[in-house]
Design a protein around this nucleic acid. Structure first.
Lengths: 167, 167
DNA sequence: CCATCTATAGTTAGTTG
DNA sequence: CCAACTAACTATAGATG
């Protein structure tokens, strides 16, 4: 990331990949250290090192082992939540996410239409629109016209205030 | 970090600490994901979660276990490097770092002197300097004078070039 | 290979709804 | 509690020595 926007994909170039690995591993460990200091949590990380036989182990071999052994005690807890509960919690979450997704769809749709509208206004070419797009577009244009009307009214009130409109 | 500069210390405020924990844990996992994608490495992380019985385990419980079990196979390798080697490698590194440290000291010293020099020039008060500082200062001033001399020469050659100096 | 630099992308503390 | 926002911050790709 940076100089050029990050493309999140395997870096084919060997040099670049190695450089990235070193920098990012260092950065990751720094972040982990910060988290530990700021929030006083126990944590560990193991990062396979393609350029060395030994993986990067943080915060230290020993402490990692300790965290891991605590972690291994847990699987029972995980299963102690009964399945019904898990299912209902999941479904709740799914519903919530779906709600957000729908909202996104609508936003996207709105933006798409706005784009089409501007393109039409610039090119003057309205003939290639589908009926559905046309109808949506009419709606959008009407909305914009209303917005402009409101804006004009507001400006008139600001520039030439009457006693009714200004305190 | 941000809005206010990060103070790397335990966050006493409960709300702030929890907020920080959530944001940073998310950020950390994102970074780890990126590292995996970009460099194709195997890795795992376990982060104790003070607000939940279960720790954050990344990339998944199962994959973490796999990475850990591979990691556990390694201690032999670690020890297969004989101690002599380890020691000499360490000493090499220490020597290198010490070299850098000395360089830093010298740089610092130089900067300190430059600061003193400017303060003296501004205030005109040279009487409070130790002998050592005075000697260093004289050296520094002579260097600066030489630098200025070279600069003058360079400028003269640029402004009034003679055949000898310009191609 | 490593260190340093710089511009830009990304992260996040604090705030607000 | 969560999501969104913004203003500071930090991280890092790419270039250079």
């Amino acid at each position: 990331m940076t100089k050029t926007k990050l493309i999140l994909a395997y870096i084919a170039n060997d040099r670049a990949r190695k450089a990235s690995f070193k920098k990012r591993t260092k950065g990751l460990i720094k972040k982990a250290d910060e988290l530990c200091t700021l929030c006083d949590v126990k944590a560990c990380a193991i990062i396979g090192n393609p350029y060395d036989n030994e993986p990067e182990v943080w915060p230290s071999n020993l402490r990692a082992q300790q965290v891991i052994s605590e972690f291994k005690k847990l699987p029972e807890h995980v299963q102690s939540r009964n399945k019904e509960d898990n299912q209902s919690i999941c479904q709740e979450r799914i519903a919530k996410k779906e709600g957000k997704l729908r909202k996104q769809y609508m936003d996207n749709n709105q933006k798409e239409l706005t784009k089409i509208m501007y393109m039409c206004l610039v090119s003057g070419a309205f003939q290639n629109l589908s009926l559905a797009s046309s109808e949506s577009l009419v709606f959008l244009l009407n909305q914009n016209i209303k917005d402009v009307g409101r804006r004009i009214e507001l400006l008139q009130n600001t520039l030439f205030p009457s006693q009714d409109n200004v305190e």
